[in-house]
C-alpha cells in the first residue's frame, strides 16, 4: 500500500515542477488544479488505509473546496485580462 502513496507523491512532483518553471499564468492554474485534486485524493487514500472516517470526510470537503477556489481565482484572472 505504501507503494501506491509513494507513486502518488512522485506524480505530485510533476505539476509542482510545471508550476515552478512555466511563465504563463493559465499553465500555473492548470498545475494548481492538478495539485489540488491530487492532494485531496491522497488524503482519501490515507483515510481508507487507516480506516479513519474523520480524515475521509475532510478529504471530500477539501476536494470540493479546492475546485471552488480555483474557479473563483480563474474568474478574477479572466476579468484582469479583459480590462
Amino acid at each position: 500500500m505504501n507503494v501506491i502513496l509513494i507513486a502518488m507523491i512522485l506524480a505530485l512532483l510533476i505539476p509542482i515542477y510545471e508550476a515552478c518553471q512555466d511563465e504563463d499564468i493559465w499553465q500555473k492554474m492548470l498545475a494548481f488544479a492538478s495539485v489540488a485534486t491530487k492532494t485531496s485524493m491522497m488524503i482519501l487514500v490515507v483515510s481508507v488505509l487507516r480506516d479513519d472516517w474523520m480524515i475521509g470526510v475532510v478529504g471530500v470537503i477539501i476536494l470540493s473546496v479546492g475546485n471552488a477556489a480555483l474557479m473563483l481565482l480563474a474568474h478574477i484572472l479572466k476579468r484582469l485580462n479583459q480590462l
Binding site: 508550476a19 489540488a36 491522497m42 470526510v57 475532510v58 478529504g59 477556489a69
Partner: peptide
C-alpha cells in the same frame, strides 16, 4: 497561484499527520 498549491500541500500534510480540523481550516 503558487500560494494555492502551498495551501493544498499543507492541507495534505495536516490531514496525514492526523489533524483533520486544521487541514479543513487550511483548505
Amino acid at each position: 497561484v503558487i500560494r494555492g498549491i502551498l495551501g493544498a500541500v499543507a492541507a495534505l500534510v495536516y490531514a496525514v499527520l492526523g489533524a483533520a480540523d486544521v487541514a479543513l481550516t487550511e483548505a
